[in-house]
Amino acid sequence: MNQQLIADRTNDEAIESLLGLARNGSIEALGDLFEMTREHLLHAASHELPMDLRAKQGASDLVQETFLVAHRLFHRFEGRTSAELLLWLKAILRNTSAHLRRSYRTARRAAFREVPMDAASSLTADLSASDSTPSALIQREETATMLRAATERLPARDRQVLLLKHHDELTFEEVGQRLAISTVAARKAWLRAIERLREQLELEQV
């Protein structure tokens, strides 16, 4: 008999035995099951995490979070083999990764609405390119306060364009893809949004 086939059969027998123990309440057996899949999940996690999240959430952190969720949901798992267990855990890992990405983006959007100083600086640099920029924009603290108020008065589309360009730091091509428009149209939409924001800021000076 093929040696790999023997190994696979032996592995599945061990998995089935551990599954039986885990279903009877053995935390140690469940931990052993998770450890048997750790390397596979670490490899999967390294591909799931986007670059902007890796500094905040490593692959090992994502795998550990996956195990915590799997422990809580283990009573729903009905598989009997290592392949079935791995597929189930990978599905949880993907869902966990997606949740982390959504949470991270939501936090970034919330931060944008507060107009933190780094975002304010980015917008100020664009606004300062015109001679019509109010002189009060020179002061960073005043700029942040004015941007908060002015941005809230912009149409939703303008706010979205500014968010994608300045806070999500997307290229015009990426902005266009998000909005289902061309790169040229995305650039024009951004210019219109900047102009409307400038107008709102100038109204603050009246």
Results as ranks from 00 to 15, higher is better:
residue 78 E to A: 07
residue 61 D to G: 11
residue 24 N to T: 09
residue 98 A to Q: 10
residue 16 E to T: 15
residue 26 S to G: 04
residue 62 L to G: 06
residue 84 E to L: 09
residue 23 R to P: 10
residue 86 L to P: 00
residue 21 L to W: 05
residue 47 H to Q: 15
residue 63 V to D: 01
residue 26 S to Y: 03
residue 49 L to W: 04
residue 38 R to H: 09
residue 38 R to Q: 14
residue 39 E to Q: 08
residue 58 G to A: 09
residue 22 A to L: 03
residue 60 S to W: 10
residue 65 E to M: 02
residue 96 T to S: 12
residue 86 L to A: 09
residue 84 E to A: 11
residue 64 Q to T: 11
residue 52 D to E: 11
residue 98 A to H: 15
residue 55 A to L: 06
residue 19 L to H: 13
residue 32 D to L: 14
residue 63 V to T: 02
residue 22 A to V: 01
residue 37 T to I: 01
residue 90 K to C: 04
residue 70 A to D: 00
residue 45 A to G: 09
residue 61 D to K: 14
residue 42 L to V: 03
residue 40 H to F: 15
residue 44 A to S: 15
residue 15 I to D: 14
residue 97 S to I: 00
residue 21 L to D: 15
residue 63 V to F: 03
residue 21 L to F: 11
residue 14 A to R: 13
residue 50 P to T: 04
residue 81 T to C: 05
residue 80 R to D: 07
residue 64 Q to Y: 06
residue 58 G to W: 01
residue 55 A to Q: 08
residue 53 L to T: 00
residue 20 G to L: 06
residue 32 D to P: 00
residue 77 F to E: 11
residue 73 L to D: 13
residue 70 A to W: 00
residue 49 L to D: 04
residue 65 E to I: 01
residue 68 L to I: 13
residue 53 L to P: 01
residue 83 A to T: 12
residue 57 Q to I: 15
residue 80 R to K: 13
residue 76 R to D: 14
residue 14 A to H: 11
residue 75 H to P: 00
residue 35 E to V: 07
residue 86 L to R: 13
residue 44 A to V: 07
residue 70 A to F: 00
residue 26 S to N: 12
residue 20 G to V: 08
residue 53 L to V: 00
residue 19 L to D: 14
residue 84 E to N: 04
residue 65 E to P: 00
residue 85 L to E: 02
residue 63 V to G: 00
residue 92 I to C: 03
residue 97 S to Y: 01
residue 55 A to E: 04
residue 76 R to E: 08
residue 13 E to T: 12
residue 21 L to P: 04
residue 46 S to P: 06
residue 20 G to E: 07
residue 22 A to G: 06
residue 61 D to W: 12
residue 94 R to T: 14
residue 26 S to T: 11
residue 47 H to A: 15
residue 91 A to T: 06
residue 16 E to Q: 10
residue 75 H to I: 08
residue 20 G to N: 10
residue 24 N to G: 08
residue 28 E to Y: 13
residue 44 A to E: 15
residue 81 T to P: 01
residue 84 E to K: 09
residue 51 M to E: 14
residue 49 L to S: 03
residue 72 R to S: 15
residue 54 R to E: 10
residue 78 E to Y: 08
residue 89 L to I: 02
residue 41 L to I: 05
residue 68 L to E: 10
residue 61 D to M: 14
residue 24 N to K: 11
residue 78 E to H: 07
residue 13 E to D: 05
residue 28 E to L: 10
residue 83 A to H: 12
residue 46 S to W: 06
residue 25 G to N: 05
residue 53 L to S: 01
residue 56 K to C: 06
residue 19 L to M: 09
residue 74 F to C: 10
residue 97 S to L: 06
residue 92 I to F: 04
residue 34 F to V: 00
residue 78 E to P: 03
residue 77 F to N: 15
